[in-house]
Design a protein around this nucleic acid. Structure first.
Length: 457
RNA sequence: GUGGCCAUAGCUCAGUUGGCAGAGCACCGGGUUGUGAUCCCGGUUGUCGCGGGUUCGAGUCCCGUUGGCCACCCCA
């Protein structure tokens, strides 16, 4: 050993806010990503992906210089370009769409799922490295010169389709509309409604931030600030609760209308409500005027998905961002999408008992062995384990065997059960085996070894 | 970036005013019952997160550091 050899270091730890995934954890991650993929494909989205790091400037275009402290950014030794690990997908998406916009179909529906990185202090539901699923609907299914009314309903259809895909995924995992609420608002509709109350458009953004901050203010403070916009105490309470009833027929929704005349808002969101109804997901939806989402680039519908008890951070969030593709150098393109992280989602699934584990998880992730081959303990049977396993694998089957020295059949069957094998093959002689189904316990003796592939296939 | 709590076996944790490093589970081996719950016996695993300091002596007290949990900030 030379003097330059580094000394062994006693202990390394995973970097702050990252996770080591042992087999049980990796299987849970696969369970989630497979479900994301399955829902996306079912709703007609095509998979894409981009680099996990981009030019630093790509992120400041949209979010300003302030974003830099939240990024993991770096410069190659000796180079002079600044890069950043991707903290979100939307800039990459906008860049990719802009680059090929002329040849892409309308609409273009894309999804991706992969790792993202944010230099934040970790806490419950928030890590520095996490997975995020993104689904986006770019362009509309009507011509650019279609009447404005047609374009409005086309936007509402796209908005509803994106929300439906998100809900379709949650449903597939066994969550219901009483576990999860999808809180929806509409920035444009909100603005129309505020204007109808003679609130000048120049003050709308200020009011949006006030609504966004309601959870952090004392009720009296919140009401006092709302009073500056002409709202009464009673009306402030409705904002405080968040929940606004909007009905399908756009009729004034009782009981809110007794104190808040929401006619303008209701009319503006009517096409969205209609599209959500057609998609069969309206029972998951709460309209909530206080959901504005921090980002300045949202232009229409915005939504957040929350655990019904309101205990966790948002499971997902998204909305319409019609100006963003243009900002990245593409043609003016209506677009709507959302992102969902794996961290809060996992907390909710674990809490509701919907995260599988053990053999159930192995079955869900498609890694069940077809056969677990054991010997009855005689030398001639033991000698057949390697060739039988090899033959099964050569036939494309998933075959395993025990690495234990014991001849205890009970212990070996326990091993077979713990890896969730479909069948145990108990080799009895140099030519025959017993086939045992580990699902129903049934046994078939005297199976010739050469017939195993046929019996298991 | 700010604050509080925490770090002992692979996991969950106990460890007395500072005095020989522990339990359960898991894992491995052996035995009994030719069949997945079992039962009995035995065994491996630790720079007590890391680095300093005080002390005859530190898992225990002090300082620093790294990481975790929680809240603030932020949330694309």
């Amino acid at each position: 050993m030379s003097d330059t050899q580094p000394k062994p270091r006693a202990s390394f730890q995973a970097p702050k806010g990252t996770r080591d995934l042992y087999p049980a954890d990796a299987a849970k991650r696969r369970f989630i990503t497979e479900a994301w993929r399955s829902a996306s494909v079912r709703f007609g989205f095509d998979e894409i992906d981009g680099p996990t790091f981009e030019q630093l400037d790509l992120y400041t275009v949209k979010s300003g210089e302030g974003i830099i402290s939240e990024l993991f950014s770096f410069r190659r030794a000796g180079g002079d370009d600044d890069y950043a690990l991707r903290p979100e997908f939307t800039p990459t998406l906008a860049r990719m769409y802009a680059a090929q916009a002329k040849q892409l179909p309308r609409p273009t529906k894309w999804f991706m799922a992969g790792p993202f990185f944010r230099a934040e202090r970790p806490q419950r539901g928030r890590l520095r490295e996490f997975l995020q699923w993104n689904a986006d609907f770019l362009g509309l299914d009507v011509p650019d010169d279609a009447p404005e009314e047609a374009r409005l309903t086309a936007r509402a259809r796209a908005d509803a389709e994106v929300i439906s895909c998100c809900i379709g995924f949650l449903r597939e995992l066994g969550l219901t509309s009483s576990d999860i609420r999808v809180k929806v608002n509409h920035r444009h509709a909100l603005s129309l409604w505020l204007s109808s109350r003679n609130i000048d458009p120049s003050r709308h953004v200020e009011l949006f931030s006030l609504l966004d901050a309601k959870g952090k203010l004392k009720p009296e403070e919140f009401a006092a600030k709302l009073a500056a916009f002409g709202f009464t105490m009673q009306q402030a309470e409705i904002f405080q609760k968040g929940l606004i009833r909007v009905t399908v027929d756009t009729a004034p929704g009782a009981p809110n209308d007794d104190v808040l005349d929401l006619t303008f808002f209701s009319e503006a969101v009517a096409p969205l409500v209609k599209a959500l109804t057609s998609a069969g997901v309206l029972d998951w939806i709460d309209f909530d005027l206080s959901i504005v989402r921090g980002l300045a680039y949202y232009t229409g519908m915005v939504f957040e998905v929350h655990e019904a008890g309101g205990k966790e951070r948002a499971i997902a969030g998204g909305g319409r961002y019609d100006g963003l593709v243009e900002l990245f150098g593409g043609p003016s393109t209506p677009a709507v999408g959302f992102g969902m992280g794996d961290v809060v989602l996992s907390l909710v699934l674990e809490d509701r008992g919907l995260m599988p584990s053990g053999p159930a998880l192995i079955a869900r992730t498609g890694s069940r062995p077809d056969a677990f081959v054991i010997s009855n303990g005689t030398p001639e049977a033991s000698a057949q384990i390697a060739p039988v396993v090899a033959a099964l694998r050569a036939a494309g089957l998933h075959a395993r065997h025990s690495y234990k020295a014991t001849g205890n059949i009970g212990k070996l069957l326990k091993d077979a059960a713990s890896c969730a094998a479909r069948f145990a093959v108990i080799v009895e002689s140099s030519t025959h085996a017993t086939l045992k189904s580990l699902d129903d316990g049934s046994q078939h003796p005297d199976i010739p070894l050469i017939e195993l592939v046929k019996r298991l296939g």
